[in-house]
Each structure stands twice: as C-alpha cells, then as structure tokens.
C-alpha cells in the first residue's frame, strides 16, 4: 500500500524500523517517507508504538533493525547530526519545571549553540506570546502554556524537521486552532513535521498520514488515499434506541462495525452488498437511513478491528 516516493526532497526516508522490548515487538518493520514541507500525521491507538518509532528516528532509542536517512543523515549511525537539526517535542513535558520560561529557552539556545542567543530567545518569547510570563517557573504553567513553551523551545535552533509527540493533548480548541495555523505557516516556509495525534480533525489537517496499530503500519497516504484504500461503504442511521440497533446490526453477516457519532450511528463494511442487505432488514420506520462518505474515524476503527493483536497473544 506504500507508494514509494523517491528523490532528494525526502526528509525522512526509513525502511524496516524495528524495536523490541524484551520479547515484545513494539515497532514492527515500519517504513516511512516524509517529503520536505509536509505535515505528516502519525496515528494509532495507545501503545501502538508511535513514541517508540519517533525516539528511534532521533537516536533516543537504538533500533534493532532498520535503515534509511533522516535529513540526509544515516538514521542509525549519525544520530548526533540528526539531533542537531531536529526539534523533538516529547509527549510528556520534559523541560525544567524549576527554571523559568526564559531560562529554559536560554538553556536550549546554549545547548544548540544558537548564534545571537539573546535576540533569538526574545523573538521566540514574543512570537509565542510568552513575553509577559518570561519569569514564571515552567512548573507553574497550565498544561496549554507548557505546550506552547515546549514548542517554542523546539524551534529555538531553527530545526529543519520537527517531531511533535501529541503536541495538542489537553489543549483547548482555540489554542489548538492557533497551533495548527502556526504549523501550517511554518510548513509553508519549508519546515517538515511529523505529528502524532489522537484527534480526527487534526488528522484531516495533515498533508499525509500514517496509521499504525500494534507496531504495524496499516495505512498511509493522503486522507483521501487512506479512506479510498480501506474500501468502506458507510451508512448513517438516526432514530430511537440506537444502542440496541447497533448490537443487532453487528450480528448481520458482513457487518461488524457500528459506531455511534452523536445522535447517529455509522454502520460500515467493506462488503457493499452485505451492508445493503443488512440495512434493508432494518429499514422499517423509526429509523432514518442515508449513505454517507466514509470518514477517517470509520476507517481507523475498521483498521484497528481487523489487525491482529500481537501483544495479547
């Protein structure tokens, strides 16, 4: 399903990346190509190996297998060079809580040997709207402000690639929208992003995305590609007692997926005929049916249900 893209403009180009923790295969031969200026979404359920994969990319974990390049450097052998040119925002806040905002930024500036550090820190404080809080200790910031600080710190050394691990978890909608506007602005300037998220609306804002579950890459491409590849047909139904309907319709041959979306139920299947038969059986009055475009979430739920859980075995 992976279309191989080649060329000089690939910022990330890795194959067969694999990581085991003891006996457990956490990342299972994942390949990924990310082009310059792309915003690449990285999705998958909890524990699917997203963080582990990103850590291997920037040399924080040693890959057991795999090869390729990141920013043109060898992903296995040149991690020091990769670190210098990558901004990595960890899933859990990992700046110093007993340092102030400005001190944290200053520290990062020094660590990367940023030229004209004072001015750079100043500009980044202003750009992120943190100037007024410069002397506040990072530990006293609210979750959303911590995220802003982390992002600002990742950008200090003008990296060419940003690896953002759930940058918007726990951030309010307005701040999330601003965050994504900023990301798109930076991408337009040629910065490349690999972003993990659990939000569907954010996945749809990505140029391309990859979906992994249990360490395996299940789908990748543009949003349209991913939806198309899944080959799902989806019907939406509204009416009373949808919970009971969901239980019954899942028993129909060829239909396994019925997911509540607000006051509606999405029933999807990759077997169009079977789905229509099932729908006909429940056509009777209290329910109102129409066929809808399959959404990303329908696809992801489908992918997850159909991938073997190699952890529980």
């Amino acid at each position: 399903m992976t279309q191989h893209r080649t060329g000089r403009d690939l910022v990330i180009d890795v194959r067969g990346m694999t990581k085991r923790f003891g006996q457990r295969l956490v990342v299972d031969h994942i390949g990924l190509q990310v082009g310059r200026g792309e915003i690449y979404g990285f999705l998958g359920p909890n524990g699917s190996g997203k963080t582990t994969f990103i850590r291997m990319l920037c040399g924080l974990l040693r890959a057991d297998e795999g090869s390729g390049t990141c920013l043109g450097y060898d992903v296995i052998g040149q991690s020091e060079a990769i670190k210098a040119a990558v901004g990595y925002m960890t899933q859990r806040f990992s700046f110093y809580e007993d340092l102030s905002i400005a001190e944290n930024l200053d520290f990062v500036g020094r660590m990367f040997g940023v030229a004209d550090r004072r001015k750079t820190v100043e500009r980044s404080l202003e750009r992120l709207g943190l100037a007024g809080r410069r002397h506040q200790l990072a530990g006293q910031l609210s979750g959303g402000w911590k995220q802003r600080l982390a992002l600002a710190a990742c950008l200090i050394h003008q990296p060419r690639l940003l690896l953002l691990d759930e940058p918007t978890a726990g951030v309010d909608p307005k701040a999330r929208r601003e965050f994504w506007e900023q990301i798109h602005g930076l991408a337009a300037d040629g910065l490349t992003f690999l972003i993990t998220t659990h939000y569907m609306d954010e996945a749809e804002r990505c140029h391309r995305l990859a979906y992994i579950a249990y360490g395996k890459l299940l789908a990748d491409g543009t949003v349209a590609d991913v939806i198309h590849q899944a080959g799902l047909t989806t019907w939406a139904v509204s009416g009373p007692n949808l919970h009971q309907l969901a239980i019954e319709i899942r028993r129909q041959p060829g239909v396994r997926q019925a997911v509540a979306f607000g006051d509606r139920l999405h029933v999807s299947s990759d077997d169009q005929d079977a789905l229509e038969a099932a729908v006909t059986a429940f056509r009777a009055s209290p329910y109102e049916w129409h066929q809808v475009d399959t959404g990303l979430e329908d696809v992801f739920i489908h992918l997850m249900q159909h991938s073997p859980d190699n952890f529980s075995s």
Partner: peptide
Amino acid sequence: GTMENLLSMP
C-alpha cells in the same frame, strides 16, 4: 522525565 529532552540534544 527531563532526561529525554537532554538526550535529544546533541
């Protein structure tokens, strides 16, 4: 948890 950050710097 700050080690992850420190290690991600060159």
